[in-house]
């Protein structure tokens, strides 16, 4: 059974259908790509899956549960974490605290324990510290942990967002254009990070324009245009698909 499945997913904005009866499947342990031209509705798909937008039709099933009726924080609790196309880190907080936000649902301290700084809180802080440092190691930000986030370069903020997402222990990680704006070295480093994350048993659905990135990582790729699925398959299969070529090149692929 698929880990994530969308069935006939529809999202409209006024008269515009941004996602049009879309069926997707992400299996456990897979890295799936979601590609398509600009404005084809990719980010909208992620926004609907994570509950930021309410869908207008169809279903999102995750781990056997219908999650399209849930709020974003509930969906997070069910095991989906994500990053954003335009990074959404907390700029005025430290790198450490940004990752700590990802641990929100696993932190159990309540108001009473916090106010009296009980043993439970102190032990939990210690436990959390280890998890955060481990995550910072994975993305290579250990050295910057006490820096104020907005002072970091763009590329580091992007991987920080990934660190924040993985400490939430998701079953599925959604990455929205993780390689956009990164240089070649940073992109290669990012591919390594993504592979590492998969090794930890986290499935991934990613949106990306950088084809080398998609080709190098994904097991399966969905291509959408105007919110409709026009092709699916391995990267090598869809690369040859005439309708995909037509969408990307704007002409009929002759070869």
């Amino acid at each position: 059974m698929a880990l994530l499945e969308t069935i006939g997913l529809v999202k409209r904005f006024g008269g515009l259908t941004a996602v049009d009866h879309l069926d997707l499947q992400v299996n456990e342990g897979e890295i799936c790509g979601l590609i398509g031209p600009n404005g084809s509705g990719k980010t909208t798909v992620l926004n609907v899956i994570t509950g930021i937008y309410k869908n207008d039709g169809g279903k999102v099933i995750f781990n056997g549960k219908e999650i399209h009726i849930l709020t974003p924080h509930e969906i997070c609790e069910h095991g989906i974490a994500r990053t954003f196309q335009n990074i959404r880190v907390l700029g005025s907080q430290t790198v450490y605290d940004n990752v700590r936000l990802g641990l929100h649902i696993q932190t159990k301290s309540d108001l009473f324990n916090i106010i009296f700084n009980t043993k439970q809180v102190r032990e939990e802080n210690e436990r959390i510290r280890k998890i955060i440092e481990e995550a910072l190691d994975i993305v290579g930000l250990r050295k910057e942990k006490n820096e104020i986030t907005k002072n970091l370069p763009y590329g580091k903020q992007k991987v920080l967002e990934i660190a924040r997402a993985i400490v939430a222990k998701p079953k599925l990680l959604l990455l929205d254009e993780p390689a956009a704006g990164l240089n070649t070295a940073e992109t290669e480093n990012l591919m390594e990070i993504v592979r590492n994350i998969r090794k930890r048993g986290i499935s991934i659905l990613l949106i990306e324009h950088e084809m080398a990135f998609v080709g190098g990582l994904t097991d399966k790729v969905y291509v959408i245009n105007y919110g409709k699925k026009i092709a699916e398959g391995t990267f090598n299969e869809i690369k040859k698909n005439p309708s995909v070529i037509q969408v990307y090149l704007g002409t009929k692929g002759d070869e």
Binding site: P72, H73, C76, A81, R88, L90, D97, L101, I105, A168
Partner: peptide
């Protein structure tokens, strides 16, 4: 931290649980 996350970015806070 949850309070500060709400102050800075409600959407990010909500998505992180």
């Amino acid at each position: 931290l949850a309070f500060k996350a709400i102050k800075e970015d409600e959407v990010a806070a909500e998505v992180m649980g």
